[in-house]
Simulated scan of single mutants.
Amino acid sequence: MQGKLSAFLILFAAVLWGTTGTAQAFAPENAHPIAIGTIRLAVGGLFLLSLVLLFGKFELKNWPIKATVLAALSMALSMALYQPLFFTAVTVTGVAIGTVVAIGSAPILSGLLEWIFFKARPSKIWWVSTFLSISGCILLFTNRESTYVDPVGVVMALGAGLTFASYTLASRDMVQKFSSLNVVAIIFTISAIFLAPFLFIFDMSWVASLQGIGVSIQLGVVATGIAYFLFAKGLANVSSSTAVTLALAEPLTAALLGVFLLGESLNTTAWLGIFLLIMGIAILIGSSRAANRKNKTAVRATL
Rank of each mutant, 00 (worst) to 15 (best):
M1K: 13
S6Y: 09
A7W: 03
A7C: 00
L11E: 10
F12W: 11
V15R: 05
V15P: 10
W17M: 07
T20S: 07
G21E: 05
P28M: 00
P28F: 09
A31S: 15
P33S: 01
P33T: 06
A35F: 09
R40S: 02
F47G: 04
F47W: 11
L48H: 07
F58V: 10
L60R: 07
K61N: 07
A67G: 02
L77F: 15
M79R: 05
M79F: 10
L81H: 11
Q83Y: 09
V90W: 08
V92F: 07
I103S: 02
I103L: 15
S105V: 15
L109A: 14
F118N: 02
V128A: 11
T130L: 07
L132V: 13
I134Q: 01
I138G: 03
F141Q: 05
T142G: 00
R144D: 13
A157G: 11
G159C: 05
T168E: 01
A170M: 10
S171M: 13
V184Y: 05
F200I: 15
S205D: 12
S209Q: 08
L210S: 10
G214C: 03
F231Y: 15
F231L: 09
L235M: 12
S239Y: 11
P251N: 08
L252S: 10
L252Y: 03
F260R: 12
L261Y: 00
L266V: 13
I274N: 06
F275T: 15
L276Q: 03
M279S: 14
I281V: 13
I281A: 04
A282Q: 08
V299A: 00
R300T: 03
